[in-house]
Design a protein around this nucleic acid. Sequence first.
DNA 1: TGTACATCAGTGAACGCGCGTTCACTGATGTAC
DNA 2: TGTACATCAGTGAACGCGCGTTCACTGATGTAC
Lengths: 196, 196
Amino acid sequence: MTKAPAARTGKRHHHGNLKQALVKAGISLLAEGGLGALSLRKCAARAGVSHAAPAHHFKGLKGLLTAIVAQGFETFTRYMIDARDQSADTPQAQLEGICQGYIAFSREYEAVATLMFMKDRFYTSDPEFQRTSSASYGVLAEACAPFRSGTMNEKAIETLVWSLVQGYVHLARSGMIDPLETPFETILPKFELRED
Amino acid sequence: MTKAPAARTGKRHHHGNLKQALVKAGISLLAEGGLGALSLRKCAARAGVSHAAPAHHFKGLKGLLTAIVAQGFETFTRYMIDARDQSADTPQAQLEGICQGYIAFSREYEAVATLMFMKDRFYTSDPEFQRTSSASYGVLAEACAPFRSGTMNEKAIETLVWSLVQGYVHLARSGMIDPLETPFETILPKFELRED
DNA sequence: TGTACATCAGTGAACGCGCGTTCACTGATGTAC
DNA sequence: TGTACATCAGTGAACGCGCGTTCACTGATGTAC
């Protein structure tokens, strides 16, 4: 037992679960001010701790960003699964659900979602990142599988769908397109089902 | 005549065309080190001028970035037109050409292309930016026009194509997909021609 | 149950960095006369 | 053709800022005895 007790009255020297608190602080900073609003010092301040404290928990700023990204992918996967499971039980509806979950996550965690694609800002060798990001891709690929055909193999259909939804998100985020004017479902191709 | 003479031997106090030189310096800095490598001071240094000099030509860093982005869109349009004009004279081939030009520009001017979508980093009210970016969109829209149909209006087909190619570029840039394994033409839908 | 001790997550001061911007200035240029 | 002058694109020093990181330290915690 090296963990501090879960709760205790009075000011304690040890924080309890600073690591998770810093990740949470980082996510809320990103939500409020975008990528530029996140720094080690601000995370520490928001977690109510001196600016040097994070060094005991993360390998520098990159380490903290790695944890934020890993948690981001975890949430991302959940968004996609939830939206899919609320959709009708046809391959087309399931895929559309996945895309809607993708879009919803990207809108609600805008800066986190952006950061998740900036591989030079965190440690891609981190096992937690690898696990959670692979899981996200797996969920997307699973929804694409029924649509592979003679002219489009599995990889191609995944690339098409992923590009389409990621581009849609990116353009909407930049204010280049208006999601209200052109909802995503109007541009998702009506794929044909594979005849095996 | 307020311009200095085009060439003159010996060290001159006035630069001649510092404005354009700073834009060029910025573009090459972006090419070499990405977005993080660009600063007013580095641009000035690369242009062989003191770090305070840019203030006489641009409204701060944002003003310089505005000029870089405007020039970026100019080049972007040219890439799309050139690739289109080298393609066969069918609507499908013309559209594919536009997309290939889009992709080529995004690859060769990676950081500039990224910057062009970050509207908070430059002045979107700049007339030159508005002119050049509108021209780029116009070229893309023109290539989409033949494919509008009963189920997909002009806006929808533009959004589909733009999202698809922008997402493809973004994912390739981030190392998420491999353009060699899945070239863009394999994921561009074979649109049907409108029957008028 | 009480005491000594090792651990280690915190503190806060200090460092050096590159940044954008401001400021008084200087000196080359083109023009008016 | 020559001179005085206004213009303005440059200089370089200085400012304050927030950043990540380092460092010696402190004091709360849990454990060994």
